[in-house]
Design a binder for these strands. Sequence first.
DNA 1: ATGAAAGCGCTAACAT
DNA 2: ATGTTAGCGCTTTCAT
Lengths: 331, 331
Amino acid sequence: MEETAITIYDVAREANVSMATVSRVVNGNPNVREATRAKVLEVIDRLDYRPNAVARGLASKKTTTIGVVIPDISDTYFATLARGIDDIATMYKYNAIIANSDSDDKKEVHVVNNLLAKQVDGVIFMGNRITDSVRAEFSRSRTPVVLAGTVDGDEQFASVNIDYVSASREAVNQLAKSNKKVAFLSGPLVDEINGQRLAGYKEALKENKLKYTEALIFESKYSYEDGIAIAERIKNSGATAAYVANDELAVGLLNGLLDLGLEIPEDFEIITSNNSPVTNYTRPSISSIEQPLYDIGAVAMRLLTKLMGKEEIEEKTVILPHGIVEKNTTK
Amino acid sequence: MEETAITIYDVAREANVSMATVSRVVNGNPNVREATRAKVLEVIDRLDYRPNAVARGLASKKTTTIGVVIPDISDTYFATLARGIDDIATMYKYNAIIANSDSDDKKEVHVVNNLLAKQVDGVIFMGNRITDSVRAEFSRSRTPVVLAGTVDGDEQFASVNIDYVSASREAVNQLAKSNKKVAFLSGPLVDEINGQRLAGYKEALKENKLKYTEALIFESKYSYEDGIAIAERIKNSGATAAYVANDELAVGLLNGLLDLGLEIPEDFEIITSNNSPVTNYTRPSISSIEQPLYDIGAVAMRLLTKLMGKEEIEEKTVILPHGIVEKNTTK
DNA sequence: ATGAAAGCGCTAACAT
DNA sequence: ATGTTAGCGCTTTCAT
């Protein structure tokens, strides 16, 4: 908003053309004589004209803005996804309004509403689960939605993830090779993503002829402190290994166990889930499932551009490959 | 954008009032009879009317959206600032468009332009320095700008920071108590923020009657790997302590020195700058300057709301308090 | 307290 | 190739 903003009308008058022609030039419409285009461009440059995106949005019903619902932008996991989203968004000339939800049901509904009121062309939703109210909100809007790193059992929405079941199965398989008692440590099991991880854990136990017991299942929050706090209980459970659903939690568990005098990985093995940088900072560094977080965001955004462009989608449930990186918390 | 979006006009017709009245109700204008308000509200609820923020923006010249220029949202330092910004923005009913700049001059100008085209009501700018072209871009716009965690020597813009000179002086003072050779490790010294840190370093040397030598100044990128890579050079410099400008860099240095067989803090002391969670994850945990990152973002956003509301500002250069947290990389 | 009407700055038919 | 003219959905005077 300049002192006295230059409008398309000012440019038209100065260039002796109609505003339609200026609009055509601005939008790269080929139906403009080269000489005319040059003149308009010159005036645009001289007057330093900057098209008002809000007016454009109202007239065209396209805002070139997307909404991103994210639990917490200061959480590296989501921030990495967000970076992937924003890079691709920028590539396709979109801007991203980022709204923190804290995975709170009420806030989620609120921010989604807000985003839709702002007429975003699409939404990328991240969370641990997708509630019915959010689902309803999206359903009665025609705005395309893509879930990133978020599991939707109903497959109502397009989504980009890795195969969490397989990933955790592989991780637990690795641990079960040399441990009879493998603990499972995650955030709330009601979150669908953790449910999938638990399913993978159970599959691995079965494959290794180990029996499942709730005594080895630990539910917690996703924080370093929670990891520290739960270390003693896990040690006392008799487990000699743990698959952990979150890196900060894993770091906490590692340091907690170290504080209790355990040798890692000799006495206890750990595999975590996101292979974020912190897994390399600890001593020993933490073995982890490796997942392409940035790419999940990037692919989700690319998918969204297709949806917004009404392109045909070959497969709306995208599964990206994962791996296991062995570092120093496994033998 | 619903199937057939319902507009203020639909509500007006259904409630037998004019759109002006609906507008008044929506905007909480008191000049509406209670009965009328109730009826309108009922219709709004029944039709599930959601005011179009784009149209509002065009008519009122206020978008209730701010722009946030950030070097990299996946960098915890900035992500924490961003979280503070977004929380206060939400509190004041603003949304934030977040644009990554990678601290790249060209990108910065580009995203700022873009943000202004979108008619954001204000901008929060984060970076290591503020270039002339960005400065120019902001200058010829009337959009309020606040710098967060970003030093502007010219004090042209409102800003929120800690006193980097004092903070690094205190950190180095602490190290100089028991070390004759204290290294200084930072990102590019052309970045004003590092210039201030260096100034503090020099002051501390002087206070401790140590002489300044370029042999102890190390310039690097801001990454873990760079910290690892530079460890040997720092060790060979004869330094027995280092003040580091970035936490990831400090973690790298710590692990690098550990790999070289040094005992920390016995053989080498380290103090870093941001006290981010990773400083607690390492063994030993890293002593650090403590700065209120979240608050810097929050206060910057609060300041911006005042600027946008044309309120009087008592002091546009805000300095927040800092501290030093002694952990286990100092004796 | 309420309504009528004029824009906000632009796009998108439709004409020419 | 270019111009004319309706809107887009809302806010905001100005009347009443």
